[in-house]
């Protein structure tokens, strides 16, 4: 427990150090890479609540990532074209304000998670995986076939959205914003885990019979956790779109859902900073090995295999020399 705390601090501190080094050395691209790590880690923190705490192997979390991305893309594109969005009698002005976009992204992905959860949580195990995957594919193909917002080609936003008091075009400031949100999500996860709800959710994962026998409803607990999880991943999607100033259907792809799972398994399922370690490792491999060979996923696969076979506690598990993912 103590040990893991030091490792978490070292991990987050290390990310800050890299950014500091890149900032003083004038390497904006490295700052962008670190921002990617922070955003993908944030998406992973969302999934980690469903997977690590709730035991829900969702292969459809890209749905929420994509909804967050399109919330940004749609609102910002209406703002940049000065044409309000009309939904029947409802007329919505576009916006370039990050807080408003985030709120929209979180509400929209929360609603989607509620609906998807209501359907998919009736099942368990491999059926749950398949149903979440199926929802992911539905959203993916819907985005491709929806011409209003770029269809398959995606949608570009020319200027990054604004945040009061910050110049978000400055890479270091945008990184700071994303990193702060990551810290907030991690703080939430840490509190959540030991709060009554987290306790009940974790118990329902370990022994649904036990949870029911004390009067708790495992399905309800999982549904709430799934919604919380989707909301966090949706927020990360909005940030990711703003980082790239571009949204496309690939944000909904099952490969992305798989990558989110990989971050968590690499880092250590259920570990607070597992997604941070996993996302950092992923981006580092992609950056270094991707330069050497376009088939760098081979090495990622080998690493993943090694972790799953020899270190089920993930990278953080190796560092703390403990396999159990939960304290």
């Amino acid at each position: 427990m103590m040990r893991e705390r030091y490792i978490n601090a070292a991990l987050l501190g290390g990310l800050l150090l890299v950014v500091f080094w890149a900032y003083t050395g004038d390497e904006p691209f490295t700052i962008t890479l670190a921002t990617r790590v922070a955003i993908l880690a944030l998406a992973g923190v969302g999934l980690n609540i469903a997977l690590g705490q709730g035991g829900l192997v969702s292969l459809g979390h890209a749905v929420f990532f994509g909804i967050g991305g399109y919330a940004m893309g749609i609102l910002a594109s209406h703002a940049q074209s000065y044409q309000p969005l009309t939904l029947g009698p409802l007329v919505i002005e576009g916006t370039k304000s990050m807080p408003l976009i985030w709120l929209t992204a979180m509400v929209a992905s929360g609603i989607a998670a509620l609906l998807i959860g209501l359907v998919s949580l009736r099942t368990g195990g491999v059926y749950f995986i398949m149903i979440t995957l199926a929802f992911g594919q539905m959203f993916y193909y819907f985005a491709i076939s929806w011409p209003a917002y770029g269809g398959e080609d995606g949608l570009s936003i020319y200027v990054r959205n604004g945040f009061p008091g910050l110049n978000t075009l400055d890479p270091i400031q945008f990184f700071g914003l994303c990193f702060a949100l990551l810290l907030a999500a991690l703080a939430f996860h840490a509190a959540f885990k030991h709060a009554p709800f987290g306790l009940a959710l974790n118990a329902a994962r370990q022994s649904p019979d036990r949870a029911q026998a004390v009067g708790l409803d495992p399905t309800r607990l999982r549904l709430i956790a799934f919604v919380i999880s989707g909301v966090i991943t949706g927020l990360a999607g909005a940030l990711f779109a703003d980082l790239n100033r571009f949204v496309s259907p690939t944000m909904f792809s099952w490969q992305l859902s798989g990558e989110l799972l990989i971050f968590i398994i690499l880092g250590g399922t259920g570990r607070l900073c597992g997604p941070v370690a996993g996302a950092a490792m992923f981006i580092a491999l992609e950056h270094w090995l991707g330069g050497l060979s376009e088939y760098w996923h081979i090495y990622l696969g080998a690493l993943l295999l090694g972790v799953v076979l020899f270190a089920p506690g993930g990278l953080i598990g190796i560092a703390t020399r403990r396999e159990a993912a939960h304290d």
Binding site: A191, F192, H194, A195, P196, F197, G198, L199, A200, N202, A203, Q206, S207, R210, A211, V214, G215, L216, L221, A324, A325, H326
Partner: peptide, 28 residues
Amino acid sequence: AMEDTVLQNALLGAFGASGRRLGLFRPA
């Protein structure tokens, strides 16, 4: 709940029986 402590297991019963809303923030 094998990963949880003995006290956490017992607390689970206490929370379940209390019928209270399960909080998200304050440690159990």
